[in-house]
């Protein structure tokens, strides 16, 4: 036993790295190694229902506050909400508070255009990239409430009937930080409806705002994105083009199991040492 504990204690961290690496990669070849069924949380359902309840010609605002570092979790969320809006002919305004997110968003829309059913969507008509502004988001929000179009200096048919941010029916903020809190702090003043799509790390920080009703709904981590994909697939979206987050579910399961295993082993070493009152 002591030899085993000694081996564990002196375990080279590269073995941990290797196992985590394999646990992330292998499930992509064997996606069915774990159960794929899971329920939809009420926060995810709420975002879906709100966008689904909008009418043709309404407008939503996507706050794209993430860059490639967080694309694994947040890109599938943004993709699904944008596609859902485009399916319902809802106008999509995409604003980038991060410079490094712009190309990510532009490429997503270009890829969406290659999918069946979206070939005819047009920039400036069905959606628009509003770009980056070198000022704080709160300043952008105040400016949008003064003159939406002038804030970004863009032109297009899409702006018809949108004078201020008050004409936007719903906004979703995608971020891997406390960024949505900037909107949330101004939400009681302006009264706009908003949801958020956040990484699993940030999710717990946003829960109080769900309770106060400042956030109407929330997509929480990779599982939230997969739940959203499933909701769209159930309503008729083609599975082939809408399973990026679901593809990562098995990887999520196995990597967490490996993590639990290491936490357990670490505690085994700790308790063994404590019981025999010696340091191996």
């Amino acid at each position: 036993m002591e030899k085993f504990i000694y081996t564990l204690k002196k375990l080279d961290k590269r073995w941990i790295y290797l196992l985590i690496f394999l646990s992330c990669i292998i499930p992509f070849w064997f996606p069915d190694m774990f159960p794929q069924e899971f329920s939809t949380s009420k926060e995810t359902q709420r975002v879906y229902d709100i966008i689904n309840g909008l009418n043709e010609g309404d407008a939503i605002f996507i706050d794209w506050a993430f860059d490639p570092t967080l694309q694994a979790e947040l890109l599938p969320m943004a993709e699904q909400t944008i596609k859902q809006a485009l399916d319902k002919k809802i106008r999509v305004f995409i604003y980038y508070p991060l410079l490094t997110g712009i190309s990510l968003g532009e490429n997503l829309l270009e890829n969406i255009k290659k999918e069946p059913g979206y070939e005819n969507i047009e920039n400036g008509v069905d959606y628009i990239h509003l770009g980056y502004l070198p000022i704080g988001v709160d300043m952008v929000l105040f400016s949008m409430y003064s003159d939406f179009k002038a804030t970004f200096g863009k032109e297009g048919k899409i702006f018809e009937g949108i004078k201020t941010f008050g004409d936007i029916k719903y906004m979703v903020s995608y971020a891997g930080s406390a960024h949505p809190e900037i909107y949330i702090s101004l939400q009681p003043r302006f009264g706009f409806k908003m949801g958020a799509g956040v990484t699993a790390v940030v999710g717990p920080d946003m829960v109080p705002y769900l309770q106060t009703g400042q956030l109407d709904g929330m997509l929480f981590g990779l599982k939230g994105a997969a739940e959203y994909e499933n909701l769209r697939i159930k309503s008729g979206a083609e599975k082939k083009y809408n399973q990026k987050a679901n593809a990562g579910m098995a990887s999520l399961n196995l990597s967490h199991i490996i993590m639990f295993l290491f936490i357990g082993l670490g505690n085994l070493v700790y308790f063994y040492e404590r019981k025999y009152k010696k340091s191996i």
């Binding site: 774990f34 159960p35 794929q36 069924e37 899971f38 329920s39 699993a200 999710g203 929480f220 981590g221 599982k223 997969a226 579910m249 999520l252 399961n253 967490h256 199991i257 993590m259 639990f260």
Partner: peptide
Amino acid sequence: MLSKMPLGEA
């Protein structure tokens, strides 16, 4: 963590 992965619910 379990609640945020499909395996937990399974």
